[in-house]
Design a protein around this nucleic acid. Structure first.
Lengths: 114, 114
DNA sequence: CAATTATATATAGATAATCTATATATGTCA
DNA sequence: TGACATATATAGATTATCTATATATAATTG
């Protein structure tokens, strides 16, 4: 089954902030993590992610710094800010409300988790 | 709480087909139904819906006919086709897969903190 | 060893699904 | 009578994706 890519719209920021809420990561790593955690459902494109990270940095949701990864190579790491953490919590609440509404229309059971 | 409108992207077609899968409706009625069923979460705009209905008709997902509503006024009713019904079932499956993937990422072993 | 593929970051331009604004017409209510 | 709700419609703006392209290094493969 191929997932309608437009489902993703609006969730990318929430997902990225969620990853960074666990640990600092660099861009390419986020793409791989999302792919793995979602069982290949999310295949976020580099051309989507890097501009988004720059925007999140401008909005003070994340900060970046250069550091050396396990393989001794320099990578651009991102770290979530207090502001970004608060935004994540808001987005999670919105997401819960949203899927409850969808399920209300679809007439099915709720798939929401806390 | 204001819901991020971009969450809706990609779901509108599924929701409209779901409404029509229960009974024939006219455009304005769909907007009202979605608003009510979702407890005001969905406030679909006329400028979004009417062009979408025209597209769905071109794609043979729905058919339309003029009929007289309860209040004796002529309204443009839409009816789901077999094709539209099949599309709805596919979208529902995609939706399930998609939210399972989101919850996989969101649920990753942590609790929301402030 | 050369060619290809994977890793890694970045930007420009295209695409698609919404939105707002506007138009038109009728009906209702204060 | 003037504003607001119902009802349908289109044009143009906005926004979040995408693809294509660029660059550089590392790893793999023929």
């Amino acid at each position: 089954m191929t997932i309608d890519k437009s489902f993703l719209t609006g969730n990318t920021t929430m997902l990225i902030l969620r990853l960074l809420d666990e640990k600092d990561m660099y861009g390419y790593q986020m793409i791989e993590e999302l792919r793995k955690k979602s069982n290949n459902v999310f295949e976020l494109k580099a051309g989507t992610l890097y501009p988004l990270l720059h925007t999140l940095e401008k909005k003070n949701m994340v900060t970046s710094y250069e550091d050396i990864a396990d393989n001794a190579k320099v990578r651009k790491y991102y770290s979530i800010t207090k502001n970004g953490h608060n935004c994540l919590n808001e987005k999670r609440e919105e997401w819960k409300t949203y899927i409850a509404a969808i399920n209300e229309v679809l007439g099915g059971a709720s798939f929401a988790t806390d």
